[in-house]
Simulated scan of single mutants.
Amino acid sequence: MLQRAQVRITRHLEADLLARHDLALASYDVLTQLAEAPGRRLRMNDLADRVLLSRSGLTRLIDRLQRDGLVNREACESDARGLFAVLTDAGAARQAEATPTYLAGVRAQVLNVFTGEELTQARHMLTKLLTSSQDPRA
């Protein structure tokens, strides 16, 4: 049931983002993580962990975002093998334009469905799941 709800919600969010901003949900997530990061940049490994993608999946997504001028890659000075994903001004603008659509979708698909008390209970339950679960990659 949890998986079905998650899939339904993400499908609605993605459909809205694609229709209004030509932006997939995973792309919006990457742009948002970079927008919130210091200097609008994150190491690729850290970004992959934050957006729950494999490193190869993130590499392909960053390739597309870079082709669209939304993200750049920069070498890491302290680690010759490391790369940063860096949000461009165009990427920041696209993320800012898409955020109201994303938030409206979250409101419609989740927040407006539950009472305040139910949302508090859900937050507690989800927090418990997140803090008690083992990371399968560990």
Rank of each mutant, 00 (worst) to 15 (best):
T101M: 02
L83S: 15
T88Q: 05
S132Q: 15
A98V: 01
A93V: 14
L70S: 00
M44S: 15
G82L: 13
A90H: 11
L87W: 12
A85K: 09
P100S: 02
E97I: 03
Q95A: 06
M125A: 04
A92N: 05
S54Y: 04
V71F: 06
S133E: 07
T101V: 08
A108V: 04
L58M: 06
A98M: 01
P100N: 04
A48L: 05
Q134M: 14
A85W: 13
L70N: 00
F84K: 01
M125H: 01
R50Q: 15
G91M: 08
Y102W: 10
A75D: 14
A80Y: 13
D79V: 15
R73M: 09
D49K: 14
D63H: 09
V51P: 04
E74T: 11
L130H: 13
N72G: 09
D46E: 11
L103E: 10
N72A: 06
L103F: 01
A122H: 06
L70V: 00
N72M: 10
R123S: 07
S56M: 14
L53Q: 15
E74D: 13
L130N: 08
E118Q: 15
D79L: 04
L58K: 03
S78K: 06
P100H: 03
R73I: 11
T115M: 09
G105E: 02
A93E: 13
Q134W: 06
M125I: 00
T101H: 05
D46P: 03
A48V: 01
C76I: 04
N45F: 06
E74S: 08
A90Y: 08
R73V: 05
